[in-house]
Design a protein around this nucleic acid. Structure first.
Length: 262
DNA sequence: AAGCCTGTCAACCGCCTGCTA
DNA sequence: ATAGCAGGCGGTTGACAGGCT
């Protein structure tokens, strides 16, 4: 029949991760790579659900993560992508190397939403709020949500919105207009998003998923070789890995190295 | 100084999709 | 062909920190 359950839910720990747990998880993944998340807790000696381990790793422990607030450019890109994709945070995150869907989702809800409202832009439809109110008066079904657009009609509905409203306006206010203009006007971007081939996705992680499918525990993904330094960090807590400090230097170097290999 | 309020973000929950036996 | 699991995803919650009164 089907597979065995992911975890028996009995004796599974919940809540915040301790430094010790982080250490175990990092050591395990750096040693064995990402394989079957279901097996990770057992093999790593963690009393956690595999799902929880995956989440912890992807959202917090991954060595290629950028920390800190999104830059103006990143924020602008998120707004633009949200206008096209709606709440598809994973798709949006795929366009921002080093950022997670959870992080972007949080940032959207806490910062960007308010910012857009302040600017008089509806964060859901990306239409001017006044216009939105009028539209709702005249036709109740016109603009329910970006999600509705994208799920029902996907790219078609959004591309028609693009002609009339904010995404391009938003692009003009970035601190890196060239980059954003290029992205905003890039038709291949949309195509690739719908084709599930994010061209900007971090190469190092594509290589991991390749290893993942093979369940190859003997040959580590290339980034792990580069990240072997992590294993030297014996006395760390969650905040002691030095990722903050390393991200801009070592991790960029690693990233570039990986990309040049690819 | 103390209590309350607000913002932030890590983590959980439940659903969906694709895969496997 | 089908039941059931794993992984992925988006929504939501709750703990904590900092600001305000």
């Amino acid at each position: 029949m089907g597979r065995q359950p992911c975890c028996d839910k009995l004796g599974v720990k919940k809540g915040p991760w301790t430094a010790e747990e982080d250490k175990k998880l990092i050591n395990f993944i750096l040693t064995n790579g990402q394989c079957c998340w279901r097996a990770v807790p057992k093999l790593a000696g963690l009393r956690r659900c595999g799902k929880s381990c995956r989440l912890r790793w992807t959202n917090y422990l991954r060595p290629d993560l950028k920390r800190g607030l999104l830059s103006e450019t990143e924020e602008q890109l998120v707004i633009d992508l949200h206008a096209r994709l709606g709440n598809r945070w994973s798709k949006i995150a795929a366009r921002l190397p080093g950022r997670t869907d959870n992080e972007i989702k949080n940032h959207w809800n806490t910062h960007i939403k308010k910012k857009l409202i302040k600017m008089g832009i509806d964060p859901v439809t990306h239409e001017p709020l006044n216009k939105e109110a009028k539209t709702q008066e005249s036709s109740s079904h016109a603009h329910h949500s970006a999600d509705n657009h994208t799920t029902e009609n996907d790219g078609i509905a959004n591309s028609s919105e693009d002609n009339s409203s904010s995404p391009t306006e938003n692009c003009s206010t970035t601190d890196d207009p060239n980059l954003l203009d290029a992205i905003c006007s890039d038709e291949s971007l949309l195509k690739s998003l719908w084709m599930d081939e994010p061209p900007l996705v971090d190469v190092s992680w594509t290589s991991i998923s390749a290893g993942e499918t093979n369940c190859n525990l003997t040959s580590l993904p290339s980034w792990e070789e580069d990240c072997a330094w992590l294993l030297d960090c014996q006395d760390f807590g969650a905040n002691d890995f030095g990722f903050d400090y390393l991200n801009d230097i070592e991790l960029n170097t690693l990233e570039m190295g990986d990309k040049s290999v690819a």
